[in-house]
């Protein structure tokens, strides 16, 4: 009777131990999946954010330029106007064009085109930093899973229950490896 009990205790503790290993493996695998999703979140953020930021900077540049062009054109008209009626009208156009220009200059003294661009550069960099951090975190999670899958005795449980090593982040295209050409 005593021997049977000892046997039973041994079997139960063995099963609990194996279960623990299995659960750890499951957790590691799920964390790797989460890591991949986190990278996707950052990639999606980049996809949604960057074109809009570029558009905003571009739009601002166009606005600044257009206003300036309008000032020049209406001044030209005012200069060339012959009769009083034309002159008054041209003067009004010029005044409103200038007012538009001064409005940007006064309301956003710091938000000029170059500021827009500097901010865009900062945002581009921090976006890429976020992506690379998420990828490094993914690599860390892959590391944990792979160590569990390969190290003894977890490897036996992993083999029996079909756990596999995950792949680290790797460059898919050879061109990604090229040093980007900085040319103006």
């Amino acid at each position: 009777m005593g021997i049977l009990w000892i046997f039973l205790v041994l079997v139960v503790s063995f099963l609990t131990w194996v279960m623990g290993i299995y659960n750890n493996l499951v957790q590691a695998r799920e964390t790797v999946k989460k890591g991949l999703v986190q990278v996707d979140v950052q990639l999606k953020r980049r996809h949604d954010l960057i074109p809009n930021l570029v558009e905003a900077a571009k739009g601002y540049m166009a606005y600044e330029k257009d206003t300036l062009e309008k000032v020049i054109k209406s001044r030209q008209i005012a200069v060339n106007a012959v009769n009083v009626q034309d002159k008054i009208q041209a003067e009004n156009t010029l005044t409103s064009a200038l007012r538009g220009f001064m409005a940007i200059a006064e309301n956003y003294p710091n938000l000029k085109a170059d500021q827009h661009v500097l901010r865009l550069q900062e945002e581009l960099t921090s976006t890429e930093n976020k992506i690379s951090l998420a990828r490094q975190q993914y690599n860390e999670e892959v590391n944990r899973l792979n160590v569990s899958v390969q190290s003894f005795p977890d490897s036996i449980v992993a083999l029996k229950t079909g756990f596999e090593k995950a792949a680290f982040f790797q460059l898919e295209q050879a061109e990604d490896r090229q040093v980007p050409q900085v040319k103006f």
Binding site: V117, L124, E128, I131, Q136, R177, Q178, P180, V182
Partner: peptide, 22 residues
């Protein structure tokens, strides 16, 4: 590789932005 990918994605864009400003 992560950092090489970062370079690939980042530097081209930065250059384009500066070119646009110029």
């Amino acid at each position: 590789e992560v950092h090489i990918k970062r370079r690939h994605d980042l530097v081209g864009n930065l250059v384009r932005v500066v070119t646009a400003l110029r």
